[in-house]
Simulated assay, not measured.
Amino acid sequence: MSSPTPLIDISQVLELHRSTVELWHLQPVENTYQGVLELVCQQHIFNYELWHQEDIARSRDVTDAEIAKVKRAIDQYNQARNDHIEKLDDWLTQQLEVNGVSPKPDAKLNTETPGSAVDRLSIMSLRLYHYEEQLQREDVDQDHLARMQARIALCQEQRHDLSRSLSELLEEIQAGTKMHKTYRQMKMYNDPTLNPYLYKAAK
């Protein structure tokens, strides 16, 4: 009996991550995808924006006011990124229900959700792009280039391992041998009723 069609095609996710990072460095960021890839792309957008705000935050030639603005943007993008990890896991839960898939009695639980693994692949695509960008520099020596090439090779190996493991996890979830849950991250610092600095200041 043939295996069911995967609910998320990880090869498509990898290509989306790779191609959009290249495209967004040349033209404005936009999400032209549909279905689950629309969710994947939106989550990827938040990582893309977050990555570049983090670069600015470490610059020494911007004012304190600009740094404060960047730090708030980082906080917002990070919250949105985490929200979309949960949205991706929620989408998977819905699809499992639609397809009548439920975990078997002896199904085990993975330590990482598919949404979290997709997030890690998104970050890896950004890391690879920017390491490969280093190879185009003319103001660095051969030691720098060799170090970048070694890091690129390691990132490629890690991306391969993670994408393969994620594909296997999704297969096991669809087969019912692994359980799937959305883990709510419930960030406290963004909630004015839970962050002591915010609710004490409000009084």
Results as ranks from 00 to 15, higher is better:
R58V: 00
R58Y: 04
D61V: 11
D61G: 04
V62R: 05
V62Y: 03
T63S: 12
T63K: 10
T63V: 02
D64S: 07
A65P: 00
A65D: 15
I67N: 00
I67Y: 05
I67H: 09
A68V: 07
A68Q: 10
K69M: 13
K69I: 00
V70Y: 01
K71D: 10
R72P: 01
R72I: 14
I74A: 00
D75R: 01
Y77K: 03
A80M: 05
R81T: 08
R81C: 10
H84A: 02
K87T: 04
W91M: 03
W91L: 05
L92A: 05
V98S: 11
V98H: 12
V101E: 15
S102E: 13
P103K: 08
P103D: 06
N110E: 14
E112S: 15
T113P: 03
P114V: 00
P114W: 04
G115V: 00
S116D: 11
A117Y: 02
D119Y: 01
D119V: 04
L121W: 00
M124F: 03
H130D: 08
H130A: 01
E132S: 15
Q134H: 04
L135M: 08
R137D: 13
R137H: 15
E138L: 15
D139Y: 05
V140P: 02
D141P: 03
D141A: 14
Q142P: 08
D143S: 15
D143Y: 14
R147F: 11
M148K: 02
M148W: 09
Q149S: 07
Q149W: 12
A150T: 09
R151P: 06
R151Y: 01
I152G: 00
C155N: 09
C155P: 04
C155Y: 13
Q156M: 13
Q158V: 04
H160D: 07
H160M: 09
D161Y: 13
D161N: 10
L162D: 01
L162I: 02
S163I: 06
R164T: 14
S165T: 08
L166Y: 02
S167T: 15
E168R: 09
E168F: 11
E171I: 12
E172C: 11
E172Q: 14
Q174V: 02
A175R: 05
A175D: 11
T177S: 12
M179W: 06
K181Q: 10
K181D: 14
R184V: 01
R184T: 03
R184A: 10
R184Y: 12
Q185P: 05
K187Y: 07
